[in-house]
């Protein structure tokens, strides 16, 4: 589904509209964050973050300036000269996020970006994603298998059902922003997880 929105796959029928544009035209305001960090191993962290600006033929000075501020944003300024192999999984993902944000997107497509991480790094990155969202105010379409992650991050949770693939249910999440680690302790948070998990089981046994 994310590939359809990104214009990487063509729909068999129907139309996709992003802010009134077709996916191919909307690429300038859309960024994709893949399941793996997809960093280029032969580039340092800063050159990886600057990749998209480089492809846009941004000047060297502008690139340097933007990369520095992006690395600061994801707290990786100290690792600017490192190569991806020297980073942990969570750090790689933060580099990937910085790269995605480098073109000032209005829509972020995130394909299970934290699925391969341990729970602690995952929770911390979730909090960081929310912080970045508050600061930059983009919209994210976030695919995940973790109900807790979905509830924590989202204002709307859509549940998809198989055969044929479709959106079966929608849950608005009315937890107050800004959310933090304490949000996970709220009774309402637990309730959302319980309801959504139950619905999810129902969808799968259909």
């Amino acid at each position: 589904m994310l590939k359809l929105v990104a214009g990487l796959t063509l729909p068999t029928s129907g139309k996709i509209c992003i802010d009134g544009m077709t996916p191919a035209n909307a690429r300038e305001i859309v960024s994709f964050i893949f399941q793996d960090a997809t960093l280029l191993p032969w580039r340092t962290v800063e050159d990886n973050v600057g990749l998209r600006l480089e492809l846009e033929h941004a000047t060297r000075e502008r690139r340097k300036e933007k990369v520095a501020s992006l690395l600061e944003l994801v707290n990786l300024s100290h690792a600017a000269k490192s190569y991806p192999r020297q980073l942990s999984g969570g750090m790689k993902m933060r580099v990937s996020i910085a790269r995605a944000l480098s073109t000032r997107p209005r829509v972020l497509l995130m394909d299970e970006p934290f699925a391969a991480l341990d729970e602690i790094s995952r929770d911390r990155l979730n909090e960081e994603v929310l912080r970045l969202q508050q600061e930059q105010n983009w919209t994210a379409l976030f695919v995940t298998h973790s109900v807790a992650e979905a509830v924590f991050l989202s204002s709307r949770v859509l549940i998809m059902a198989p055969h044929p693939g479709r959106i079966a249910y929608e849950f608005p999440i009315n937890l107050p922003y800004p959310r933090s680690a304490e949000t996970r302790q709220l009774p309402a948070f637990e309730e959302y997880i319980a309801i959504i998990s139950k619905t999810l089981r129902g969808v799968q046994s259909e």
């Binding site: 990104a6 990487l8 690429r27 994709f32 893949f34 399941q35 793996d36 998209r52 492809l55 073109t103």
Partner: peptide, 9 residues
């Protein structure tokens, strides 16, 4: 996905 990354840009 690396190719996709470039295509998106």
């Amino acid at each position: 996905n690396m190719v996709n990354l470039f295509l998106m840009q």
